[in-house]
Lab assay of single mutants.
Amino acid sequence: NKFNKEMRNAYWEILLLPNLNEQQKRAFIRSLYDDPSQSANLLAEAKKLNDAQA
């Protein structure tokens, strides 16, 4: 399933972002589970926040 693969990839990438705190990571991951079809958008948002907090 395409969404499962995308979601899994986004999950691990979000977990490994160094500048997000645990609460932020949990919020993004919760959103991933709520709507896996938004994986790419959520990952992009997480990366943007990660860069902003660098």
Score class of each variant (00 low, 15 high):
1 N>V: 04
46 A>P: 00
34 D>V: 12
54 A>M: 13
38 Q>V: 09
36 P>H: 06
6 E>F: 03
20 L>R: 00
15 L>I: 13
43 L>Y: 04
47 K>N: 09
48 K>D: 08
6 E>S: 01
31 S>I: 09
10 A>W: 03
53 Q>I: 13
7 M>W: 15
52 A>M: 12
19 N>W: 08
35 D>L: 04
35 D>S: 10
7 M>H: 05
9 N>S: 14
7 M>D: 03
53 Q>A: 07
42 L>I: 15
3 F>S: 03
20 L>N: 00
25 K>S: 03
40 A>Y: 13
9 N>Q: 14
34 D>K: 11
17 L>S: 10
6 E>I: 04
44 A>L: 10
50 N>H: 03
38 Q>A: 11
13 E>S: 10
50 N>I: 01
46 A>K: 00
49 L>I: 11
51 D>E: 15
30 R>E: 11
1 N>K: 04
45 E>R: 12
25 K>A: 03
30 R>V: 14
40 A>Q: 11
28 F>A: 07
30 R>M: 03
53 Q>W: 15
43 L>M: 07
13 E>P: 01
51 D>K: 06
5 K>N: 05
10 A>E: 01
27 A>V: 10
29 I>H: 06
54 A>D: 13
18 P>N: 12
4 N>V: 03
20 L>D: 00
41 N>Q: 10
50 N>Y: 01
38 Q>H: 12
21 N>T: 12
22 E>A: 11
31 S>W: 12
48 K>N: 13
11 Y>F: 09
46 A>G: 02
20 L>Q: 00
22 E>W: 03
34 D>M: 12
5 K>H: 05
40 A>W: 11
23 Q>V: 12
39 S>E: 01
49 L>F: 07
10 A>P: 01
26 R>Q: 10
19 N>S: 08
12 W>K: 15
49 L>M: 11
1 N>M: 02
34 D>F: 13
23 Q>F: 12
2 K>A: 10
53 Q>L: 14
1 N>S: 04
45 E>V: 14
31 S>A: 10
38 Q>R: 10
3 F>T: 03
24 Q>D: 11
8 R>W: 13
13 E>F: 09
29 I>Y: 08
19 N>H: 15
7 M>Q: 13
7 M>L: 14
36 P>E: 04
4 N>H: 10
26 R>F: 07
36 P>I: 04
7 M>Y: 06
41 N>A: 05
49 L>S: 06
17 L>R: 02
33 Y>H: 04
3 F>W: 14
34 D>H: 05
41 N>P: 03
5 K>E: 11
5 K>D: 06
37 S>M: 09
32 L>F: 03
28 F>K: 02
29 I>R: 03
26 R>M: 07
11 Y>Q: 08
53 Q>K: 01
